[in-house]
Write a protein that binds this DNA or RNA. Structure first.
Lengths: 121, 121
DNA sequence: CTGAATCCTATAGGATACTG
DNA sequence: CAGTATCCTATAGGATTCAG
């Protein structure tokens, strides 16, 4: 049992997972990976089904864990943008793998995501 | 929006995640990766905190998704063993990365998991 | 030993309305 | 635009007991 900051983890993987648990975190991170500097509403529009509550909650946790950083662009009109930190970028192989793995498996099920990407908007 | 078998996914990553969601799946899979052919009670003993309900539920889903396979070793006494399928092994980079990433980050927090692994049993 | 079945609770998560 | 706050529900998940 690993202990760090009053929390316990059964193994390193369990520890890693603690950064990316929650329904939307990996999707938020990967969106930032493929398209950096996104606004709050960008996420709303590109994460079908996310509720505002979850979005702001997960964004806050990701920010707390230093995986993303929020920059206030202007006070009025109030504008912000989110981006991956250097630390958040160290998870790049994760997004990449999950994406590649999914694409490959979808292909075996007759769905060519790359070729027909425009269909899946 | 990608549709497959009556389910919808926002992107390939979302699709991949559908195989590994649930609190214990990745840990179960990684345990099988590092130590193949485990029995039901092996999991009970090596996944601190897992309830029997969750364990059997997640094992069943993993089996349904063809990521693991259950072999009945003997009828009486009733004995089984679980192992990764070839398909399940295609997720190996995932376990590996999450493990490496966690170990590295732990190290930066003064925890040398490799060297002191015996302490974390 | 390997689970399935029940029952229960906490929390994840959604919908909506509101604020600077 | 970028969130908060509130209220509500569904489900994840735990504890325990039972069964082949």
């Amino acid at each position: 049992m690993i202990q760090l900051n009053d929390k316990k983890y059964t193994c390193p993987i369990d520890f890693s997972l603690s950064f990316i648990d929650g329904k939307w975190k990996i999707l938020i991170l990967s969106h930032l990976h493929y398209c950096s500097n996104r606004s709050y509403s960008d996420f709303c529009n590109n994460l079908p089904g996310v509720s505002e509550k979850m979005l702001s909650q997960q964004l806050k946790e990701l920010e707390r864990d230093k995986l993303i950083i929020k920059t206030i662009l202007s006070k009025k009109p109030y504008r912000v943008e989110y981006a991956l930190t250097e630390f958040g970028k160290t998870l790049t192989p994760l997004y990449q793998f999950l994406s590649d793995w999914g694409i490959q498996y979808l292909k075996q099920n007759g769905i060519d995501y790359i070729k027909d990407q425009h269909l899946y908007k």
